[in-house]
């Protein structure tokens, strides 16, 4: 045993998203405070907590949708350099948002264009980055609809005519079509029936694994966090009170609030 040196692991992996001491206040009211977090390529990080705990504020700051009051958010661009999100021009940030990032809203109507067809919803990002071949755009859209288990014959239907679960799956396809490296999800299974939730969770698990996606998932549902994430943060009153390996936080919670949260899960 002594022959093997106790070396620290070579830091071959570099974080994709680096969050340092991030705070956000809405005027005098606290949104989130002093959050630090690194997200590495291919890992899923869950942020859990009850409503009002600051998790959605945090997510919006990470995704550049909200400017933090203090602290920094850096993203590793394709050239390998970390760049501060808020040092980017708005044009750069929006380009990032439609290429390297995805954002899955709890309410699919916020992330979809409800009055254009499913195919165009999926194809929009492709067209936005310059794809100008109808045939390939449509073929790609069909492929993605199949991946999210939407029948090919619904490609020309508007999402208005879709069920909640289908809309959510369409939103996921729309986000993933440009092969983003990082996806933000805000309660991705919120408001769905349990059976529809299960299907969506399974789909997300599979896509995250197949595409090697990194994801930050905000949820109040600990079961969702357990199924999807490798690591989790527990937030309360705007601060991160506990973080670590998802199954350790859930099975061996340290903080009083986390213990309360875990013990509050309904058993079926």
């Amino acid at each position: 045993m002594s022959a093997v040196a106790m070396l620290p692991d070579a830091e071959t992996e570099r974080p994709l998203l680096k969050v340092s001491r991030l705070s956000h206040y809405y005027g005098a009211r606290l949104g989130c405070r002093d959050v630090s977090l690194d997200v590495y390529p291919g890992e899923v990080v869950a942020v859990v907590g009850e409503s009002g705990s600051g998790k959605t504020t945090l997510l919006n700051c990470l995704a550049g949708r909200l400017t933090p009051t203090a602290g920094s958010v850096e993203f590793r661009m394709r050239d390998g350099r970390l760049r501060s999100l808020f040092g980017l021009t708005e044009a750069e940030r929006r380009l990032l948002a439609r290429t390297d990032w995805g954002f899955v809203h709890q309410n699919p109507a916020e992330g979809l264009r409800m009055t254009v067809s499913a195919g165009a919803n999926v194809g929009e990002r492709l067209m936005a980055i310059g794809d100008r071949h109808y045939g390939t755009i449509r073929a790609t859209a069909l492929d993605w609809l199949a991946r999210v288990e939407i029948a090919a014959d619904r490609i020309d239907d508007e999402p208005r005519s879709f069920s909640g679960g289908m809309r959510q799956r369409l939103q996921i396809a729309r986000n993933l079509v440009t092969r983003p490296r990082l996806v933000f999800m805000d309660e991705p299974t919120g408001g769905l029936d349990v059976s529809v939730q299960a299907r969506l969770l399974d789909l997300l698990r599979q896509l995250v694994a197949d595409l090697g996606l990194a994801a930050v998932v905000v949820t109040h549902d600990l079961a969702v966090a357990r199924l999807l994430s490798d690591r989790m943060l527990v937030m309360k009153d705007g601060t991160v009170i506990e973080h670590g390996l998802t199954d350790r936080v859930l099975d061996d919670p340290r903080e009083p609030y986390t213990q309360l949260l875990v013990s509050s899960i309904l058993q079926v």
Binding site: V4, D230, L245
Partner: peptide, 16 residues
């Protein structure tokens, strides 16, 4: 492999 990992103190990503 060729390394020793202390599970008691390793960071979560190392355990994964």
């Amino acid at each position: 492999g060729e390394r020793l990992v202390d599970v008691a103190s390793a960071d979560p990503r190392r355990i994964v």
